[in-house]
Amino acid sequence: MAFLEVKDLKVHYPIRGGILNTVQDHVKAVDGVNLSIESGKTYGLVGESGSGKTTIGKTIIGLEKATSGKIFYEGENVTNKARSRKKKYANYNKDVQMIFQDATSSMNPKKRIIDVMAEPMHNYFDYTPGETKRRVAELLEIVGMNAEAMYKYPHEFSGGQRQRIGVARAVASDPKLIIADEPTSALDLSVQAQVLNFMRRIQKEYGLSYLFISHDLGVVQHMSDDIAIMHRGRFVEQGSKEAIYKNPQHIYTKRLLSAIPDMDPTTRKAHKVERQRVEAEYDAQETEYYDPNGRVYDLQRYDNDHLVALKPEEPNASLQNEKVKTGGES
């Protein structure tokens, strides 16, 4: 069962200009996105810079305001309610946490690790100082660090260690969903491997869900069960990992996948030819996959667990039915 549902989410930023500084137009950072997150699963959100993937994560956790659309947490409408102190939203605040790309700037440099990590605990639990300490030690241990680390300051750690502390802190409030926004993009390959391993171990141990936001298709493939590909603020394709990677349908997905560098230098030439073929196809068929305003079409059911944003065949009754059907099921 999905415990978090995002329905037709739109986040638009006004562009002001003119003499009177009036609103001239909108940047449609997120423009009608549906998403549902099940417990224990990892949901990958992929897109290039500017596609709106981070905005979705920030809106779910309440760092950005939704322009329209709704977010439901366990049936409760929690849209734009993250800052509310009302009791009925308390669970939502506690259960949704975030890991940021840059661990350094997400920690107060003047606080020791124990204080950094105790903050979410103080907010949601009545721990005694002794209990807090025990819990911090326990959390540090699951990300492979010594309990002594709690008396150090953030700058005393390497980038990978800091990111692991970031993961441990996100787990501190015992959440159900962690939004991980490019958690390993600033890390080296071998350090990235470590952080990803810990994230997966914690997921197994606590039955967590992740909303894993990344531009790195390899990392997303490694971590995710379900994937959505974003472009221009909308989903172009959504489905299981197998469906997206083995059987991509939208030209944008194909283009992204073909651009991933191939680890086999012997097939370099063939890979380049294929990539340029897809690129040419993308240029030639843009009108087939985007409407005259350059907007991505609505998602349509392609297969059982696979939705693709394709051009509606005929604007007639059958399409309307199709749309209602997909909207209802997702």
Partner: peptide, 11 residues
């Protein structure tokens, strides 16, 4: 750079 741009620059 993004992967698609990366591919173009490398080419």
């Amino acid at each position: 750079l993004d992967v698609t741009i990366q591919a173009q620059i490398l080419d």
